[in-house]
Write a protein that binds this DNA or RNA. Structure first.
Lengths: 232, 232
DNA sequence: GAATAAGTTAACGTATACAATAATTCTCGC
DNA sequence: GCGAGAATTATTGTATACGTTAACTTATTC
């Protein structure tokens, strides 16, 4: 897959359809929280915002609805789906399951030194970021770690699914990033996962990662509860 | 015109859109293997087959493509996605993960007597079907068992996902149904899962169900291999 | 006969037209 | 002021029109 990334305004983007662009732009706007959650947007409105007709807009909306980011309500337009505490529970239950499976699969394959090193580097970067109290960097490295782990599963469906649910919960994670306690033992967990994978110990990798995700999921949901946030 | 008749009790006020009907009809045709796998169907052709214009047809195709049942190839029409051995590996890895999580979640909730009984009945029906050498009935009860298990997870996302992957592999399962050895110890496994859930033993339920799915996944893939089937 | 260029076809992507109808506003009797 | 029903509006769902361009065909050259 060639990534011909040009400035979209000047360069008539080679072969990307409007429908595709609508999907990517809209998704980006949602993830960056540039659209008000809960508010209704008419198809026409979205289409104008994207500077195209309703047809490709609708096609993008269908895809986004399938991914659970958006809800299409027949006579009321679409709205960004707010994430409730219960949604977060569901999302984390699914992520826990899929990612711990990914850890086991990664352990079963014998990863190259380079692949293991990439994960170790992510963990090291998290340590460093934590030492500097740089939450931004920590979040970046954390995301990188999880992405690598899942990629090493060698299962395209698994990779796509995890991506979908990471996206669904993205907003919540960003918002709660500054409310949560310093993720010290999170790093501990990650290290244990990497080492289990390096040893090829699938059961241990799965177990440790599951425990890790269960813990962080519970923490996040408690956080929402104590701050009285019911929908984000 | 077609009569949108429901059972009188479940009156649905909103009429079903063509787009929705296209999705359901097409999906049904795919699952029932009424469309040739691999062949190209032009949008126009599908639209005529469904007796509507291209617009709702396209919308249905987008959804089916998202679910992985169909592939849209820009100038060549759509085609039913053939399932390779590698696809089956991926699908079963995902299903194994999600369903065993469902088993654990079901065990953690305390299911009602009625719910446990429904699962026990499914297992009993499988036993009976096996005794009668009635593969049809066995498959029905097996599917019912898995569906119940997942439903009891109380996680809508999990339920939807499992449905998607069951659908993706539906054709393969139907075709291999008569090639596989009699699923004797499959029933054994199911019973163990139910009893673990009934006891509220989440870890055991998860473990047993994972082992079960791994076993049946491996069996299915070996079956495809020994019969030299590379794509279905 | 192979390679290349020119010409043709047709499938798609997108815009637009339009009818159906849910939602909203208005009217009017009480 | 309130509710029922009529009238109006707005938004969607669907059909259709149409330009673009990938894919295919034919012509031309060596």
């Amino acid at each position: 897959m060639e990534s011909a990334q040009e400035s979209p305004s000047t360069r008539k983007s080679a072969r990307e359809s409007l429908s595709e662009r609508a999907y990517r732009d809209l998704k980006a706007q949602i993830l960056e929280n540039r659209l008000s959650v809960g508010r209704q947007y008419m198809e026409q409105e979205i289409a104008e915002r994207l500077d195209m007709s309703r047809t490709p807009t609708r096609e993008a909306l269908i895809r986004l609805a399938n991914e659970g980011l958006v809800e299409i309500r027949p006579r009321h337009g679409m709205r960004i789906k707010p994430i409730s505490r219960d949604d977060m529970r569901e999302i984390y239950e699914v992520l826990t399951s899929l990612e711990s499976q990914a850890a086991a699969l990664a352990a079963r394959r014998s990863l190259s030194k380079a692949e293991i090193d990439a994960m170790r580097r992510a963990v090291a970067d998290m340590d460093a970021a934590l030492k500097d109290d740089d939450l931004e960097s920590w979040a970046e490295a954390d995301e990188r770690f999880h992405r690598l782990l899942v990629e090493y599963s060698d299962n395209r469906r698994l990779i796509a699914l995890v991506g979908t649910f990471i996206d669904q919960s993205h907003r919540v994670r960003m918002i709660t990033l500054r409310m949560r306690p310093r993720p010290t033992d999170s790093n501990q967990d990650h290290r244990a996962v990497v080492e289990a994978i390096a040893r090829g110990d699938a059961d241990e990798a799965r177990r440790v990662h599951r425990t890790h995700r269960e813990k962080s999921g519970r923490m996040l949901i408690d956080l929402l509860a104590t701050h009285g946030m019911t929908e984000i």
